[in-house]
Amino acid sequence: MKQPLAYVHPEAKIADNVVIEPFVTIDKNVVIEEGTRIGSNATIMEGTYIGKNCVVFPGAVIGAVPQDLKFRGEKTTVEIGDNTTIRECVTINRGTVAKGKTIIGSNCLLMAYVHVAHDCVIGNNCIIGNATQIAGEVIIDDFAILSGLVAVHQFVHIGSHVMISGGSLVRKDVPPFVKAGREPVSYIGVNSIGLRRREFGNEKIREIQDVYRYLYQKGMNNFNALEAIEAEMPASPERDDIILFVKNSKRGIMRGYFPE
């Protein structure tokens, strides 16, 4: 259903039961799948794909060119999965030649005034709090929660099932299953509440806590901690996810918390 006061480019591909409210602008080379609703004054720009049953609130701008001076007009995209909600005045920029696309997964919630820069990859079931600002080429894995007013440095990797405290400045990689906060952003424990909500049992949570004791509480550097974890703890998907995350970290993982 398209309101007569909305503009939809004739080359846009809009499913029959998409709701488009007044004063929406939809550019060419846009695809919007069935069941999605686009709120008034939203702007959906060239190269945007929006999946099924999404809700885009008023004032959002999706698919604008990157805020990157190296961008030269190359054909790039924004891809948004199914059942994702994008609240008021969110901005999502499309990719650059670096990766070609910005990706937001399915079942995500991006609260008001969030910014997602070029070439970011946000997984499924993520919650991004109000006014959080995510720089270019950031990766956020599934089930991560970033509270309001978080600022994420470019190229940072945030692991799955992470909880980041409001107002945090995230300059280093945040490994999976943890809570992060304070300044500079630091390890403040395993995200046990979030893990229980996702049906992780107590034994599995204790295993994850044991892994992080090696990394953050035994006074070892990361290399020695990883060697000890591999030698002394049995393999499991969670243990191995943490090991691979730390080994592959390009910016280095966040520090432990050392009270003064």
Rank of each mutant, 00 (worst) to 15 (best):
K2Q: 15
Q3L: 09
A6Q: 15
Y7I: 08
V8G: 09
V8C: 11
H9G: 04
H9A: 07
H9R: 03
P10C: 10
P10I: 06
A12N: 07
I14E: 10
A15S: 04
D16W: 06
N17D: 15
V18P: 02
E21W: 14
E21D: 14
V24R: 01
T25M: 15
E33H: 02
R37N: 11
I38D: 05
G39Y: 12
S40C: 13
N41D: 10
A42E: 13
Y49N: 14
I50L: 12
I50P: 14
K52D: 00
P58H: 14
P58V: 04
A60S: 15
A60K: 04
V61Y: 05
I62Q: 13
I62T: 12
G63S: 13
P66L: 11
Q67H: 11
R72C: 08
R72P: 06
G73T: 12
E74F: 09
E79T: 07
G81L: 04
E88H: 12
E88Y: 06
V90N: 08
T91H: 06
I92F: 09
I92D: 07
N93Y: 10
R94V: 09
G95Q: 06
T96M: 05
A98T: 12
K99Q: 11
G100D: 10
K101N: 11
S106F: 07
N107C: 10
N107L: 09
L109T: 09
L109W: 09
A112V: 12
V114K: 01
A117I: 01
H118D: 05
C120L: 04
C120H: 05
V121G: 03
G123M: 05
I128C: 12
G129N: 05
T132A: 05
A135R: 07
V138N: 03
I140H: 00
I140M: 02
D141N: 15
D141C: 14
F143C: 15
A144N: 14
V150C: 06
V152C: 07
V156T: 12
V162S: 05
G167M: 01
G167W: 02
S168R: 03
V170S: 01
P176I: 05
F177N: 05
K179Y: 02
A180N: 00
E183K: 08
I188G: 00
I188Q: 01
I188F: 00
G189F: 03
S192N: 03
I193Y: 15
R198H: 13
E199S: 14
E199F: 12
F200R: 03
G201M: 02
G201A: 04
N202S: 15
K204R: 14
I205K: 04
E207K: 09
Q209G: 00
V211N: 07
R213D: 03
Y216V: 00
Y216R: 00
Q217V: 01
K218M: 15
G219M: 10
A225C: 06
A228S: 15
A228P: 09
I229T: 13
E230S: 10
E230Q: 13
S236R: 00
E238A: 14
R239F: 10
L244W: 05
I253D: 03
M254I: 06
P259Y: 00
